[in-house]
Design a protein around this nucleic acid. Sequence first.
DNA 1: TGCTTGTTCTG
DNA 2: AGAACAAGC
Length: 453
Amino acid sequence: MTSILWLRRDLRLGDHPALHAAAEEGAVLPLFVRDPALANAGDARRSRLEASLAALDAATDGVLVVRSGDPAEVVASVAAEAGATSVHVTGEFTPYAVRRDRRVADRLREADVPMASSGTPYAVRPGSVVNKSEAPYQVFTPYSRVWRDQAIEPPLDRPRGLRWRRTVDSEGLDTALVERGRSFGPVGEDAALDRWRVFADGALDDYDSRRDRPDLDGTSRLSVHLKHGEIHPRTLLADLTNGRRRSQGARTFVTELAWREFYADVLWHRPESAWRDLRDGLAGMRYDEGPDVEELVEAWRQGRTGYPFVDAGMRQLLEIGWMHNRVRMVTASFLVKDLHVWWPVGARHFLDHLADGDLASNNHGWQWVAGTGTDAAPYFRVFNPVTQGKKFDPDGDYVRRWVPELAHLPGVKVHEPWRHDGGYDHGYPRPVVEHDEERKVALERYEKASRST
DNA sequence: TGCTTGTTCTG
DNA sequence: AGAACAAGC
């Protein structure tokens, strides 16, 4: 008996319920399908995925099968070729994935091959945390209280006596893509577990005070591993519980995991909110578009807005496919509230360049900043890019690291080149807009939009 | 998981 | 003068 393990965002062997379920039926054929519908994922994300597949292939002694095409056709034909009696998957919850999985399951049913879903990429299944009237929570804090109290299954070991089977051809991997994917840092399940141990034994206890500092290595850097399922949040939570880590840092880290789960839950309940305002409270909001603002948006994309903290973040994104979360908030606020651009424009750019790009976390993070989401920041919260920089990059190291035209300015001066002699000696651009003015414009438009609805 | 402004308090 | 705080955006 052979069963197929159709892998998607669960590229690991430990703590993998679907792998267990597959292994219980006999030999396991691991399959990844390159879906043309997902070909528009950014270069960073696609290459990082390819590298993760290479790591998994190595961990399975090279039995991974990779095929391109419509998943319904590919999974069905591989099942037929291998004589598989079932297909096992980890549940997926984004709008496209839900439709796709329904379609694949239907197609397999015609061939009398059941598709079984075990587990999810989350500690708590999206849709399972509800209030007393069985409705989803609209606000993070009450959600997180209930989420925290959910019984979490203990992590599973790798299945014993696992037999792999590769009886069908594989397209193989794109070595150039794999190479580029590896440029984002260590890849694969072992690397993810290593990173987690280093973080848990190191920065975790100070996470509460240091996570907001992009100039320090104070964050977990686990996002890309979580994105591809190289590690499961259940593993992290179990370690935190068993290790009885009770520091404020550990508690805050758990809260960050809860945000990830909350946003997946919100997107599951409201799939249309991926690319549209979740709340219609700002429906009358006036945003700028067209050629004039497009030039400003391009300056934002390239990290040439003239605001050092913003530009450092945007350049970090382009160079390493990752941006510190504090800076994601500040750069997002700049696009929405200083350039008056609707949030999906920015969310698209982030997804195009983040190696860890995740639809739920990214787009609902943007909606939070824009004030259009569930539990979003009120619209009148406008980040000041200069004071945010001075506060969270107090020595200016982050800006100097990513903006070489400002590397000659010492200390906190990098945040205000206009106030220092020679600030523009190395070609750094002047501010493309005046924050104080644009803040007022944003508040006026908000005021108008609130009155109209 | 903000910012600004105005006011009061402190040294 | 500058910290600490409240209130409104």
